[in-house]
Design a protein around this nucleic acid. Structure first.
Lengths: 161, 161
DNA sequence: ATAATATAGTCAGTGATGGTCAAACTTTGG
DNA sequence: CCAAAGTTTGACCATCACTGACTATATTAT
């Protein structure tokens, strides 16, 4: 029923029909649709999430922006990222995290150097907290890195294989 | 967009592409960009900090100047690692962490891909905690990654330029 | 020496963005 | 009609850029 969110979604998809990546000003967009700025965040969160194949980046302050990047499916690993994120969930133990990183390495989606850095980031030493909190935090850090790894593939920042 | 600060940064980096050290007059530079002189200090503080690998020297009064010096790593990697670890300490803000990572990238001690993963690991999204705790945790994660980066160098796991 | 002049530094304040979260509201499915 | 799910908003927060008033220091003229 022509929900606001749907309109905004269509509008953004229209903008992205040519470019795989666009930048918008959150406030401008909100004004264009006569809605609260946070509405934009809602649309991004529900329609342009990683699960939907998009990555959102942004910057605050003067000259700030919101960048929306459409990921293309890579060689059969189209939704590998989703699978991995799901596996990570909101809490993960160190050995499981290590296994996931190992897997990425096996697939040559990360270099040995990158893998070792990722392991370091979620290692025991890095997370000086009570065990429970530690697992939760580890999951958050790992999810962020995973998303970045796939983002790098988009950018050709890949330096692997 | 095309933030003033970014332009000034580019301008300075351009000047430094040949020389490892330049001198400018703060007022002249400000006038060249049509901004307040203190804007120059802002750019120097946010883009040419020690974390970024630069040292700023200056002199006031007649014939005054601002000298920007690109630091050269000395004493080998072990020394640099210690310096960085010390700088990170037990608590660090995101922008400072980003500066350190960028510095490593400038020195080609990490690849662009590795740098982006490191940024992701210490980004605000990754650390869902109250700000104070966030900084403490960020420091721990960053220290661990830094140590790993230098270990990689030892082991020739380096896959960069 | 002292005063005038020429620089540069600091810092708090303002404005421009975007983010988060919970509460209020709306739509949908039974 | 009601409860669950989805949508929308607003208040408050975080970050970044930029400026101006005030301060500090160096050189030069008297």
């Amino acid at each position: 029923m022509a929900q606001l969110s749907d309109s905004i979604e269509r509008f953004i998809k229209e903008l992205m029909s040519e470019e795989a990546q666009i930048e918008v000003r959150r406030n401008e967009l909100a004004q264009h649709f006569g809605c609260a700025p946070s509405q934009i965040n809602y649309v991004l969160a529900t329609r342009f999430s990683v699960e939907h194949g998009y990555i959102i980046e942004s910057r605050r302050g003067g000259g700030g922006f919101v960048r929306i990047v459409r990921m293309r499916p890579h060689g059969g690993n189209a939704n590998l990222l989703n699978t991995l994120l799901e596996r990570v969930g909101t809490s993960i133990r160190e050995d499981t995290a290590a296994a996931i990183i190992e897997h990425l390495s096996d697939l040559h989606l990360v270099t040995p150097g990158e893998a070792s850095i990722m392991r370091a980031a979620v290692g025991r030493n890095a997370l000086a907290l009570p065990i429970n909190a530690k697992d939760v935090l580890r999951a958050a850090v790992l999810r962020n890195m995973l998303t970045q790894v796939f983002r790098n593939l988009e950018e050709g920042k890949r330096n692997d294989v």
